[in-house]
């Protein structure tokens, strides 16, 4: 493998990991195994880098690899599966683009969006931040969060839903503002 190829690959890891992880999750992969599947997709891509046509979209190529990995999960026995459900993954796969055909997919520009989200999260009031951290950092259950914050579980879920909505708006606003204007 040429050194230039490896350098290209390294750049692509940085550029695509956020989008790829989002894509993998969106196919119904268990959240605990998302990084594992995404890394595996990168490793497969690395080992097949010679086959990659640089005229093509690398992100789409990666998604194709990840898609096949997720399809393969369905053939594994239950204990080794990294997806939540075969049937659910089937439905979600059906709505995902076939990578060779389509460059745009849900979750594109992931890195920029994660960076925007990070800024939005920093602006959250303390208690909202505690709620998001408990859910996304500590993976605490709604019941545990409710106990700690003096709420009830459905209220925790609803509060998180509203927080996600406000984070989504904030993220989109920042992304829109960052886009170069076309005249």
């Amino acid at each position: 493998m040429e050194k230039a190829d490896r350098e290209l690959f390294v750049e692509q890891v940085r550029e695509h990991h956020a989008s790829l992880r989002g894509f993998v999750r969106s196919l119904g992969v268990n959240p605990l195994w998302v990084d594992d599947v995404a890394q595996e997709a990168f490793i497969v891509a690395y080992n097949r880098l010679d086959e990659f046509d640089q005229e093509r979209d690398f992100g789409a190529w990666l998604r194709g690899i990840a898609r096949n990995l997720v399809i393969n999960e369905r053939r594994k026995d239950a204990r080794r599966k990294r997806i939540l459900s075969d049937n659910l993954t089937d439905v979600l796969l059906a709505t995902s683009s076939v990578p060779e055909d389509e460059a745009e997919e849900l979750g594109d520009r992931g890195l920029a969006k994660v960076n925007a989200l990070r800024e939005c999260i920093q602006e959250l009031p303390e208690k909202s931040l505690a709620l998001v951290q408990a859910k996304y950092e500590e993976n605490a259950s709604a019941q545990d969060i409710a106990d700690n914050l003096g709420m009830n579980p459905p209220a925790v879920r609803k509060a998180l839903e509203r927080l996600r909505t406000s984070l989504r708006k904030c993220m989109e606003k920042r992304i829109d503002n960052a886009l170069p204007t076309t005249s």
Binding site: A18, R21, G22, F23, R25, S26, L27, G28, P31, V34, D35, V91, L92, A94, T95, S96, L106, G107, G110, K113, V114, N115, L117, R118, C120, I121, V132, Q133, Y136, E137, R164, L167, R168
Partner: peptide, 22 residues
């Protein structure tokens, strides 16, 4: 189904943005 996928992606990104482990 697409809306669910979008939600899952956002969940994943929030986890990236906030969690050291992610």
């Amino acid at each position: 189904a697409i809306a669910l996928r979008r939600d899952l992606i956002e969940d994943e990104w929030i986890a990236h943005a906030i969690s050291d482990a992610k």
